[in-house]
Nucleic acid binder design. Structure first.
Lengths: 213, 213
DNA sequence: TTATAAATTGTCATCATTGACAATAAACGA
DNA sequence: TCGTTTATTGTCAATGATGACAATTTATAA
């Protein structure tokens, strides 16, 4: 008899709007007013569907981490043919493991993690998962490579990849920067080719292909 | 006859306090109240010595970029003996090219750059300078290496280095992560050893040495 | 149709932040 | 000592953000 609850859907919409605001204005700049406008609803509904500011932030962080986990699982499950395949997925704009906005949300949440232990725990797990999934991908590509070497290259790749996304607002037009990141990532991957027994799957760069614009 | 002006000194103190607040609370979370408390002065003095919110932010961004420029110049002037010397300066905690807080300030300013063209211009120059200085260092270490290869490795190193700092709040206790970043950076540098005609300056890792705590 | 529970809207008090200005205290030269 | 300029403090209004609640509307089952 009651009116059917759409709380879960609305909550999802609100948290999505929250993420967009965090990416654009920073965590502290993502006010309820902006979130409500972005979601196209009235502000009091934020409270109704999710909760007060504290609950909003916590739920948004949880949702963000969960969303990244799903993306990373897809990455880990993807049947990469070789180094170039992985590089394309990570650095060419047709795919979307994560978006620049995602990385900017992460940097904002990491700042908050300094003063909020719950956010810190969420983001710590968030990063561990990313590291694990990158290692899984590399193990798939280089089964005979040393585990420590795999882990190091994974961390390096993540760094280069995150850096590219984090600088997107000021470097989106800088194709050279994108190419350099691509090449550096390839150098890291190539080190696994030579150290393990694999054959080299070619080393032609992205050169004239379209890069993240 | 007038009372001597200490505006420049006070301004410096205020902007330093502003940076500390940005690193801890994010750009939007760095309120005048917090800045004044951090600087140990009364809030109206912010206005007196620097200006309103807009001027505060712009001056802080300028000062930050200038400070990084100086650090980067020191890095470029440093007489590195070899790969390990550079790696130590970048990844071991006795040195301080930039601090984790600096990287967090940068990520915050980059978010603001999306909605403020002046900040965007400042941060774009900021990054170009860092890229140039890293390339200078690498040219010094590998004079015969290809220019494009130098540029790529520089970008990769910057990414790994920034990533390490950006994740500091959630990974400061994770020595493994720091070691992995170090090793990945070494792999990048080693690629220049083999591609240019240099002799290999050794490949012993940081293993049991103290890493950024 | 009607009861029920949820969604939605409207509104208000409270608090925090900012901008602005007046008033006072301090330092230095004449 | 006195005058001038600056630093510093105190204060207030305006704005914006948040939390809370009442009132209304809506959708469904009985």
């Amino acid at each position: 008899m009651p009116r059917p609850s759409i709380k879960s859907e609305r909550k999802e919409e609100i948290l999505q709007a929250y993420e967009r605001c965090m990416a654009l204005y920073g965590v502290e700049g993502a006010t309820q007013k902006r979130i409500a406008e972005e979601a196209g609803i009235a502000r009091p509904l934020l409270r109704h569907h999710v909760g007060n500011n504290e609950e909003l932030l916590l739920e948004a962080a949880r949702r963000y981490a969960e969303r990244c986990k799903v993306s990373m699982q897809e990455l880990a499950d993807y049947p990469f043919s070789g180094i170039e395949g992985l590089l394309d997925v990570l650095f060419l704009d047709n795919s979307d493991v994560t978006s620049p906005a995602d990385t900017m949300i992460a940097t904002g949440l990491i700042v908050v993690a300094q003063t909020d232990e719950r956010i810190k725990a969420i983001m710590s797990d968030w990063f561990d998962d990313i590291q694990n999934k990158f290692e899984q991908v590399l193990v798939g590509l280089f089964p005979s490579a040393e585990k420590e070497e795999i882990a190091s290259i994974a961390s390096g790749l993540i760094g280069i990849y995150f850096n590219l996304d984090a600088l997107f607002p000021i470097k989106k037009a800088d194709v050279d920067f994108q190419k350099r990141s691509y090449r550096a990532a390839r150098v890291l991957l190539m080190s696994l080719v030579s150290s393990s027994g694999n054959s080299c799957p070619g080393n032609s760069g992205p050169d004239n292909t379209s890069v993240r614009g």
